[in-house]
Amino acid sequence: MRLKIAYNLFFILCAIGTGSCTKQEPVPSLNNHSSHQELSQEIVPIESNVKMVEITGGKYLPFYSADDSLVAVNSFLIDERPVTNLEFLNFIKANPSWRKSNVKRIFADSTYLRDWVSDTVLPINSKPDAPVCFVSWFAAKAYANAVGKRLPKLDEWEFVAMADEEMPNAREKSTYSNAILNLYLIKDRQYNAVQQSKPNYWGVYNMFDLIWEWTDDFNSVLVSGESRAGEYGDNNLVCAAGATNATDVLNYAAFMRFGFRTSLKANYTISNLGFRCAQDITK
């Protein structure tokens, strides 16, 4: 069976909001047809053996909330770990249009799979079970489609990110928060294999210790690149807390994640940016 995917071309607006964090309209779904220029690509399905973990939904206070209003997250499935080099190689083999010599620049910039020896040979000395990096949002979306999944939504990802090893919401625990910040300061973590660290409460591995991860609507919340409006903000108090309040250091780590996401465009490929997949629960 072949899935026919229509890719809507659109410009990722990296326009920075005047408020330092604002929730925007999500990026257009891949399945929306539009009158804009379209490019059709055929995705050949591949097998994926990664275990998925069910996350019990709930409400949470997102980093970007300007008025303390909670956001509902439905129950969903998420890969227990990021997609690996080997898995992405299998995808490439089945889908030649995503090889580095074939991919279109609008879908992946010039550093796409940068260190790969060739179209189908992983980088020298790389671990097959290390997370794949130097992949664009488009490439991540295509992979997810090939395995019959999707990328996690930003709120889903951040919902899972609240968990430490013992509880689903550890944002009150400063030890946990500090551990994340410590990890964020270490370079070249992306070359390590997946699942070498402990899973969190849900059984999900590697949320923080290896890579940054694409989310489906990565650019729906923009932290100003200038990044200070919120800190000085007169009414955007949650953002302000994110930068200044010692009692919720988790927001400080989230602040860094949202800052990173704001620097991205959908065709960017970066040394420490990979992804994992998610799925709706259909019962």
Binding site: C14, I16, T111, S224, G225, E226, S227, F260, T262, S263, L264, Y268, T269, I270, S271, N272, L273
Partner: peptide, 22 residues
């Protein structure tokens, strides 16, 4: 980068926000 010598938004900060490798 925000240069205090600049007349313009953020001293250039928004215009120069660069992801790793960019």
């Amino acid at each position: 980068i925000d240069l205090h010598a600049v007349n313009g938004p953020g001293g250039g900060a928004e215009a120069t926000f660069a992801a790793p490798g960019k």
